[in-house]
Simulated assay, not measured.
Amino acid sequence: MAGTHKFLRLRGSARLPVPLRGAVIAIGNFDGVHQGHKAVLQTALAEARKTGRPALVFTFEPHPKAFFKPEEPLYRLTTAAQKAAYFKAMGFDAVIEQPFTAAFAALSAGDFIQSVLQDRLAASAIIAGANFHFGYKRQGTPAFLQQAGRDSGFITVLVAGKKDKTGKFISSSRIRALLESGEIQEAEALLGHPYTVQGEIIRGRALGQQLGFPTANMALPAATKLRYGIYAVCFRTCGKSYQAVASFGRRPTIEAAGKPLLESFIFDFDRDIYGKQAEVLFVGFLRKEEKFAGIKELMAQMRKDVIAARAVLALKALP
Protein backbone atom coordinates (compact mmCIF):
# COMPACT_ATOMS: atom_id res chain seq x y z
CA MET A 1 0.00 0.00 0.00
CA ALA A 2 2.53 2.53 -1.19
CA GLY A 3 1.80 5.99 0.10
CA THR A 4 -0.16 4.79 3.18
CA HIS A 5 2.79 5.26 5.57
CA LYS A 6 5.10 8.18 6.07
CA PHE A 7 8.24 7.47 4.02
CA LEU A 8 11.04 6.05 6.15
CA ARG A 9 14.80 5.85 5.70
CA LEU A 10 15.96 2.89 7.78
CA ARG A 11 19.57 2.07 8.64
CA GLY A 12 19.39 -1.70 8.39
CA SER A 13 16.42 -4.00 8.80
CA ALA A 14 16.55 -4.74 12.53
CA ARG A 15 13.91 -2.18 13.47
CA LEU A 16 11.46 -2.57 10.61
CA PRO A 17 8.04 -1.33 11.79
CA VAL A 18 5.50 -4.15 12.04
CA PRO A 19 3.15 -2.59 9.42
CA LEU A 20 5.96 -2.84 6.84
CA ARG A 21 6.58 -6.56 7.31
CA GLY A 22 5.37 -8.71 4.46
CA ALA A 23 6.26 -6.06 1.92
CA VAL A 24 7.16 -6.26 -1.74
CA ILE A 25 10.88 -5.50 -1.85
CA ALA A 26 13.02 -4.17 -4.69
CA ILE A 27 16.68 -5.10 -4.10
CA GLY A 28 19.73 -3.50 -5.71
CA ASN A 29 22.39 -0.80 -5.51
CA PHE A 30 20.36 1.58 -7.70
CA ASP A 31 23.20 4.12 -8.11
CA GLY A 32 21.73 6.84 -10.29
CA VAL A 33 18.20 5.39 -10.17
CA HIS A 34 18.42 5.22 -13.96
CA GLN A 35 15.91 3.88 -16.47
CA GLY A 36 17.03 0.29 -15.95
CA HIS A 37 16.63 0.65 -12.20
CA LYS A 38 13.24 2.22 -12.64
CA ALA A 39 12.04 -0.85 -14.53
CA VAL A 40 12.81 -2.92 -11.40
CA LEU A 41 11.35 -0.32 -9.04
CA GLN A 42 8.15 0.15 -11.04
CA THR A 43 7.66 -3.62 -11.20
CA ALA A 44 7.86 -3.71 -7.40
CA LEU A 45 5.38 -0.87 -7.06
CA ALA A 46 2.96 -2.58 -9.44
CA GLU A 47 3.16 -5.85 -7.45
CA ALA A 48 2.60 -3.97 -4.18
CA ARG A 49 -0.47 -2.21 -5.54
CA LYS A 50 -1.84 -5.47 -6.94
CA THR A 51 -1.47 -7.30 -3.65
CA GLY A 52 -2.20 -4.39 -1.30
CA ARG A 53 1.16 -4.68 0.43
CA PRO A 54 3.79 -2.08 1.37
CA ALA A 55 6.57 -1.36 -1.14
CA LEU A 56 10.16 -1.19 0.12
CA VAL A 57 13.58 -0.71 -1.43
CA PHE A 58 16.53 -2.67 -0.03
CA THR A 59 19.88 -1.16 -0.94
CA PHE A 60 23.42 -1.03 0.41
CA GLU A 61 25.58 1.65 2.06
CA PRO A 62 28.38 2.07 1.27
CA HIS A 63 28.20 0.81 -2.30
CA PRO A 64 29.70 -2.72 -2.31
CA LYS A 65 32.34 -1.66 -4.86
CA ALA A 66 33.56 1.00 -2.44
CA PHE A 67 33.77 -1.64 0.31
CA PHE A 68 35.68 -4.23 -1.71
CA LYS A 69 38.00 -1.77 -3.47
CA PRO A 70 38.52 1.20 -1.13
CA GLU A 71 41.71 2.08 -2.99
CA GLU A 72 39.62 2.87 -6.09
CA PRO A 73 37.31 5.80 -5.20
CA LEU A 74 33.89 5.20 -6.72
CA TYR A 75 32.26 8.03 -8.67
CA ARG A 76 28.75 7.74 -7.28
CA LEU A 77 25.92 9.15 -9.36
CA THR A 78 23.65 9.58 -6.34
CA THR A 79 24.10 9.87 -2.60
CA ALA A 80 22.00 7.79 -0.24
CA ALA A 81 19.86 10.87 0.43
CA GLN A 82 19.29 11.47 -3.27
CA LYS A 83 18.28 7.86 -3.83
CA ALA A 84 15.87 8.04 -0.92
CA ALA A 85 14.28 11.16 -2.43
CA TYR A 86 13.73 9.36 -5.74
CA PHE A 87 12.21 6.33 -3.99
CA LYS A 88 9.88 8.55 -2.00
CA ALA A 89 8.78 10.44 -5.12
CA MET A 90 8.05 7.15 -6.90
CA GLY A 91 5.69 6.07 -4.11
CA PHE A 92 7.67 3.64 -1.95
CA ASP A 93 6.94 3.39 1.75
CA ALA A 94 10.54 3.05 2.90
CA VAL A 95 14.13 2.36 1.94
CA ILE A 96 16.32 0.04 3.97
CA GLU A 97 19.96 1.13 3.70
CA GLN A 98 21.81 -2.03 4.68
CA PRO A 99 25.24 -1.28 6.20
CA PHE A 100 27.68 -3.12 3.94
CA THR A 101 30.15 -4.30 6.56
CA ALA A 102 32.66 -7.15 6.67
CA ALA A 103 30.13 -9.21 8.63
CA PHE A 104 27.40 -8.60 6.07
CA ALA A 105 29.76 -9.35 3.17
CA ALA A 106 30.56 -12.70 4.81
CA LEU A 107 26.89 -13.69 5.06
CA SER A 108 26.09 -16.70 2.88
CA ALA A 109 23.34 -16.45 0.29
CA GLY A 110 21.22 -18.87 2.29
CA ASP A 111 21.70 -16.93 5.52
CA PHE A 112 20.75 -13.70 3.76
CA ILE A 113 17.52 -15.31 2.58
CA GLN A 114 16.71 -16.73 6.00
CA SER A 115 17.90 -14.05 8.43
CA VAL A 116 17.14 -10.92 6.42
CA LEU A 117 14.44 -11.58 3.84
CA GLN A 118 12.41 -14.03 5.92
CA ASP A 119 13.07 -13.46 9.63
CA ARG A 120 13.44 -9.67 9.64
CA LEU A 121 11.40 -8.60 6.63
CA ALA A 122 8.93 -11.46 6.07
CA ALA A 123 9.12 -10.51 2.39
CA SER A 124 6.11 -11.43 0.29
CA ALA A 125 7.88 -10.70 -3.00
CA ILE A 126 11.42 -9.91 -4.13
CA ILE A 127 11.99 -7.89 -7.29
CA ALA A 128 15.53 -7.65 -8.66
CA GLY A 129 17.48 -7.26 -11.86
CA ALA A 130 18.03 -10.38 -13.93
CA ASN A 131 21.77 -10.42 -13.07
CA PHE A 132 21.38 -9.80 -9.33
CA HIS A 133 23.91 -11.73 -7.23
CA PHE A 134 24.20 -11.67 -3.46
CA GLY A 135 25.80 -13.32 -0.45
CA TYR A 136 29.39 -14.29 0.23
CA LYS A 137 31.47 -14.00 -2.95
CA ARG A 138 28.25 -13.42 -4.92
CA GLN A 139 27.30 -17.08 -4.55
CA GLY A 140 23.60 -16.24 -4.55
CA THR A 141 22.59 -16.41 -8.20
CA PRO A 142 19.27 -15.36 -9.77
CA ALA A 143 18.36 -19.05 -10.04
CA PHE A 144 19.18 -19.55 -6.34
CA LEU A 145 16.92 -16.62 -5.44
CA GLN A 146 14.05 -18.05 -7.50
CA GLN A 147 14.39 -21.48 -5.89
CA ALA A 148 14.55 -19.90 -2.43
CA GLY A 149 11.31 -18.12 -3.19
CA ARG A 150 9.62 -21.35 -4.19
CA ASP A 151 10.91 -23.07 -1.07
CA SER A 152 10.09 -20.23 1.32
CA GLY A 153 6.85 -18.94 -0.13
CA PHE A 154 7.78 -15.54 -1.51
CA ILE A 155 7.33 -14.40 -5.10
CA THR A 156 10.50 -13.71 -7.09
CA VAL A 157 10.47 -11.49 -10.16
CA LEU A 158 13.66 -10.92 -12.13
CA VAL A 159 13.50 -7.91 -14.44
CA ALA A 160 15.51 -8.01 -17.65
CA GLY A 161 18.04 -5.25 -18.24
CA LYS A 162 16.72 -2.28 -20.16
CA LYS A 163 18.25 -1.15 -23.44
CA ASP A 164 18.39 2.33 -24.92
CA LYS A 165 17.34 3.22 -28.46
CA THR A 166 20.71 2.03 -29.79
CA GLY A 167 20.18 -1.44 -28.35
CA LYS A 168 22.83 -1.10 -25.62
CA PHE A 169 22.06 -1.94 -22.02
CA ILE A 170 21.62 0.99 -19.66
CA SER A 171 24.05 0.89 -16.76
CA SER A 172 25.54 3.16 -14.13
CA SER A 173 29.02 2.63 -15.60
CA ARG A 174 27.83 3.83 -19.03
CA ILE A 175 26.34 6.94 -17.45
CA ARG A 176 29.55 7.66 -15.55
CA ALA A 177 31.50 7.43 -18.79
CA LEU A 178 29.13 9.87 -20.50
CA LEU A 179 29.47 12.37 -17.66
CA GLU A 180 33.25 12.09 -17.78
CA SER A 181 33.01 13.06 -21.46
CA GLY A 182 30.61 15.94 -20.83
CA GLU A 183 27.76 14.21 -22.67
CA ILE A 184 25.11 15.57 -20.33
CA GLN A 185 22.02 15.13 -22.47
CA GLU A 186 22.96 11.55 -23.36
CA ALA A 187 23.42 10.80 -19.66
CA GLU A 188 20.04 12.36 -18.88
CA ALA A 189 18.37 10.14 -21.48
CA LEU A 190 19.69 7.02 -19.73
CA LEU A 191 18.95 8.35 -16.26
CA GLY A 192 15.43 9.48 -17.09
CA HIS A 193 16.12 12.71 -15.16
CA PRO A 194 18.86 15.36 -15.15
CA TYR A 195 22.16 14.45 -13.55
CA THR A 196 22.01 16.20 -10.18
CA VAL A 197 24.47 17.01 -7.42
CA GLN A 198 23.68 18.44 -4.03
CA GLY A 199 25.59 19.99 -1.18
CA GLU A 200 26.20 22.99 1.01
CA ILE A 201 26.98 26.40 -0.45
CA ILE A 202 30.43 27.38 0.74
CA ARG A 203 32.43 30.60 0.67
CA GLY A 204 35.09 31.04 -1.98
CA ARG A 205 37.52 33.85 -2.71
CA ALA A 206 34.65 36.17 -3.78
CA LEU A 207 36.51 36.89 -7.02
CA GLY A 208 33.36 36.27 -9.04
CA GLN A 209 31.57 38.95 -7.09
CA GLN A 210 34.39 41.38 -7.80
CA LEU A 211 34.11 40.60 -11.50
CA GLY A 212 30.33 41.03 -11.55
CA PHE A 213 29.61 37.29 -11.65
CA PRO A 214 28.93 36.25 -8.03
CA THR A 215 28.79 32.48 -7.72
CA ALA A 216 27.30 29.92 -5.36
CA ASN A 217 30.10 27.45 -4.72
CA MET A 218 29.89 23.76 -3.92
CA ALA A 219 32.66 21.22 -3.30
CA LEU A 220 31.81 17.88 -4.92
CA PRO A 221 33.13 14.53 -3.64
CA ALA A 222 36.77 13.88 -4.55
CA ALA A 223 35.77 10.84 -6.64
CA THR A 224 33.59 12.97 -8.96
CA LYS A 225 34.78 12.59 -12.55
CA LEU A 226 32.39 14.99 -14.22
CA ARG A 227 34.20 16.65 -17.13
CA TYR A 228 35.75 19.99 -16.28
CA GLY A 229 33.90 22.68 -18.16
CA ILE A 230 31.02 25.12 -18.37
CA TYR A 231 27.40 23.96 -18.08
CA ALA A 232 23.87 25.28 -18.40
CA VAL A 233 22.18 24.25 -15.16
CA CYS A 234 19.07 24.51 -13.04
CA PHE A 235 19.90 25.64 -9.50
CA ARG A 236 17.57 24.72 -6.64
CA THR A 237 17.67 26.12 -3.14
CA CYS A 238 15.20 27.05 -0.42
CA GLY A 239 12.36 25.42 -2.33
CA LYS A 240 12.83 27.41 -5.55
CA SER A 241 14.46 26.78 -8.93
CA TYR A 242 16.58 29.20 -10.93
CA GLN A 243 18.44 29.21 -14.22
CA ALA A 244 22.21 29.41 -13.99
CA VAL A 245 25.52 28.82 -15.72
CA ALA A 246 28.05 26.72 -13.82
CA SER A 247 31.74 26.04 -14.02
CA PHE A 248 33.22 22.81 -12.71
CA GLY A 249 36.99 22.63 -12.58
CA ARG A 250 40.21 24.07 -11.20
CA ARG A 251 39.98 27.71 -12.45
CA PRO A 252 43.29 27.62 -14.39
CA THR A 253 43.16 31.33 -15.28
CA ILE A 254 42.94 32.27 -11.61
CA GLU A 255 44.86 29.56 -9.74
CA ALA A 256 47.83 27.41 -10.62
CA ALA A 257 46.44 24.25 -9.02
CA GLY A 258 43.05 24.96 -7.48
CA LYS A 259 40.91 22.21 -6.02
CA PRO A 260 37.91 21.19 -8.18
CA LEU A 261 34.93 23.39 -7.40
CA LEU A 262 31.42 23.78 -8.80
CA GLU A 263 30.65 27.49 -9.17
CA SER A 264 27.13 28.54 -10.24
CA PHE A 265 26.28 32.04 -11.45
CA ILE A 266 22.53 32.24 -10.85
CA PHE A 267 20.58 34.51 -13.17
CA ASP A 268 18.51 37.33 -11.70
CA PHE A 269 19.39 36.32 -8.15
CA ASP A 270 20.58 38.36 -5.19
CA ARG A 271 20.33 36.40 -1.94
CA ASP A 272 22.75 35.26 0.74
CA ILE A 273 22.64 31.46 0.65
CA TYR A 274 25.95 30.61 2.31
CA GLY A 275 25.50 27.50 4.41
CA LYS A 276 22.26 26.56 2.66
CA GLN A 277 21.72 23.23 0.93
CA ALA A 278 21.31 23.33 -2.83
CA GLU A 279 20.91 21.09 -5.86
CA VAL A 280 22.43 21.64 -9.27
CA LEU A 281 20.73 19.90 -12.20
CA PHE A 282 22.89 19.70 -15.32
CA VAL A 283 21.05 20.58 -18.51
CA GLY A 284 23.75 21.06 -21.15
CA PHE A 285 27.52 21.11 -21.68
CA LEU A 286 28.68 24.39 -23.20
CA ARG A 287 32.47 24.12 -23.48
CA LYS A 288 35.56 22.60 -21.89
CA GLU A 289 37.53 24.39 -19.19
CA GLU A 290 40.16 26.73 -20.63
CA LYS A 291 43.04 28.88 -19.41
CA PHE A 292 42.76 32.43 -20.73
CA ALA A 293 45.48 35.00 -21.17
CA GLY A 294 44.05 37.13 -18.38
CA ILE A 295 40.99 38.31 -16.43
CA LYS A 296 39.77 40.51 -19.28
CA GLU A 297 39.63 37.59 -21.69
CA LEU A 298 38.00 35.39 -19.04
CA MET A 299 35.26 37.95 -18.40
CA ALA A 300 34.56 38.30 -22.11
CA GLN A 301 34.10 34.53 -22.35
CA MET A 302 31.93 34.46 -19.23
CA ARG A 303 29.53 36.93 -20.81
CA LYS A 304 29.31 34.63 -23.85
CA ASP A 305 28.73 31.65 -21.54
CA VAL A 306 25.76 33.41 -19.91
CA ILE A 307 24.18 34.01 -23.31
CA ALA A 308 24.80 30.43 -24.39
CA ALA A 309 23.37 29.02 -21.15
CA ARG A 310 20.25 31.16 -21.42
CA ALA A 311 19.71 29.89 -24.95
CA VAL A 312 19.99 26.24 -23.85
CA LEU A 313 17.78 26.73 -20.80
CA ALA A 314 15.11 28.57 -22.82
CA LEU A 315 14.42 25.29 -24.59
CA LYS A 316 13.78 23.37 -21.38
CA ALA A 317 11.34 24.03 -18.55
CA LEU A 318 12.83 24.07 -15.07
CA PRO A 319 12.20 20.71 -13.33
Rank of each mutant, 00 (worst) to 15 (best):
N29W: 06
R174I: 03
A26R: 14
F87L: 05
L286I: 14
P214Q: 12
K276D: 07
M299K: 15
A2K: 09
R250S: 12
I266V: 15
C238I: 08
K6A: 14
A300W: 09
A23I: 04
I126P: 01
F213R: 07
K165Y: 06
K50E: 14
P221L: 04
F265W: 15
L298K: 14
G153L: 01
A216E: 05
R203P: 07
L207M: 13
Y195F: 14
P99T: 11
L56M: 04
L262Q: 04
L220P: 11
K69G: 04
M302D: 12
T78D: 12
L8M: 15
K162R: 09
Q277V: 04
Q42G: 07
N217G: 06
S115Y: 08
A125F: 05
F134M: 03
L313S: 00
A160W: 00
M1P: 09
H5N: 12
A246V: 09
F60N: 13
E183A: 13
A278P: 06
T43K: 09
V18G: 02
K88W: 08
E289Y: 03
A187H: 03
E279N: 10
T166H: 07
R250P: 06
A278H: 05
Y75G: 02
S13P: 13
S173N: 07
E186M: 08
I175T: 02
L10Q: 07
L10W: 03
R138M: 08
A125P: 02
F100N: 07
G3D: 11
K291M: 10
A257T: 11
R205C: 11
A314T: 00
R15I: 11
G239Q: 06
T51Q: 12
V233H: 09
G22V: 01
R203N: 09
L45A: 05
H37G: 03
E47D: 10
I113S: 07
Q42L: 07
F67Y: 14
Q301P: 09
I96A: 08
R150D: 03
F112T: 06
P142N: 07
G229Y: 01
A222V: 12
Y136C: 07
A219Q: 13
K165N: 00
Q98M: 12
F92G: 02
S13I: 02
Y242Q: 04
R15D: 15
P260L: 08
R205P: 10
G204V: 04
A257F: 12
A143W: 00
A223P: 10
A105M: 08
A39K: 07
R250V: 14
L220S: 13
D31P: 06
V18D: 09
I127V: 12
